[in-house]
Design a protein around this nucleic acid. Structure first.
Lengths: 126, 126, 126, 126
DNA sequence: GTGGTCTAGACCACT
DNA sequence: GTGGTCTAGACCACA
């Protein structure tokens, strides 16, 4: 099952995070055409956000034809191709790294130390 | 001398950009311990923003103990950036990295890609 | 409900008084984890100060991770007040006390007198 | 020799701290009538503050006749009785304790824990 | 309705 | 001249 994750500290609006995660989820194959998404209610409860926040996210994706809502049945991944351009991927990677470096800086941790720590883990897991 | 620049289009708050640039300057060694920053007034004029916007940025960094201010004297890069024990810092580094990898995973970004992005920044700015 | 009061004569900045009262409220258990604080607007009206003054106070506590705010929702007492290890806290307690005793010594105040003063406050407010 | 100590974090102006320390020093017998104080220059260097700050402090004490300046010789403790009332002592103790509790609160340390730590040390030292 | 950002400008305190 | 505080008010974004 696809897992949503809200970062309350990043300052990125909740509805934007939900939208991004669904789009990237489709682009990376974690979510597939026709698959059913959680209902707005269940997702709102799960993420502990207001119902309207989830509705807003689903609505925007519906407008982009990425999602299809069937009255009374649920919300599904649409058949449209989802375009997550290489550029968008790069931007997302970049913005995540920037925030990461900033958070670390508060504790006097340098980017170099972050890289070392990440490499340590990578070696262990791959 | 350290140079500030504001991107008026990015949507990132001005005071946040100032904060990020100072932190970045410290992380990359362009700003050093004890060094004096521009006065709030001169920076406000230089960046063409309101005095309070600069004060807000400096204040946040002061609360985080990254800057030290003395009324009537000026604002300086703090001296006790690293007063935490090595062990503490190792733990913090580890937890920050874990969190970071998890957030990235939601967007289908692998640790390897994160390392590459971080190395890119490091190479470019040091 | 928690009650705020400003002393307009003390010379202590309004925003500082608000900060102190919230911290005190938490320390004495009058404000609890997760509890919602008055909205910035309502508190500004109640204390007859400008909106920005209240925002400034809340913001500082947010930076210190004592409060958590969510745009559009409200401001809450933070939940991760105590995420430091027992050992870390013991060290911190020790160093704070040492510093404190030294400062007091300059004014000829003995540790015993400090203890008495602290106990007075504790007894009165809990 | 009498030791001065500036607390840069308390927000209390430097000149005020110098004044207070001299007054309390006299009241507690650490400074005696006729004793010579450091020259403004040496004290300014020692405390790393502006010369004018020390001058301002000495000047105010001279006006209160607590100090006497002999041109070309130095500054001495005067013969006036220094009145540090019981009330003033209480206020000073109180304000130091308040700041102490506030600083501790940031680290999630309760007044009770401070008292315990102080009592531990007291037992050991007395 | 909630918090967030920014401006313009006044007035204060410290060095 | 340095930073600090506060006000009044506009406009924005999120839930």
């Amino acid at each position: 099952m696809f897992e949503f994750r809200l970062d309350t500290r990043s300052g990125v609006p909740f509805y934007r995070q939900i939208i991004d995660q669904i789009r990237f989820g489709i682009a990376t194959g974690q979510l597939r055409m026709g698959e059913q998404l959680p209902t707005v209610r269940s997702l709102a409860v799960q993420l502990k956000v207001n119902l309207n926040t989830v509705i807003k996210a689903y609505k925007e994706l519906e407008i982009q034809k990425i999602l299809e809502t069937q009255q009374g049945t649920g919300t599904f991944i649409g058949s449209e191709t989802v375009n997550v351009s290489a550029k968008e991927r790069r931007n997302k990677t970049k913005s995540i790294c920037e925030e990461f470096v900033n958070v670390a800086a508060v504790y006097g941790i340098t980017p170099k130390q972050l890289i070392e720590e990440l490499q340590k883990n990578e070696g262990g897991n791959l």
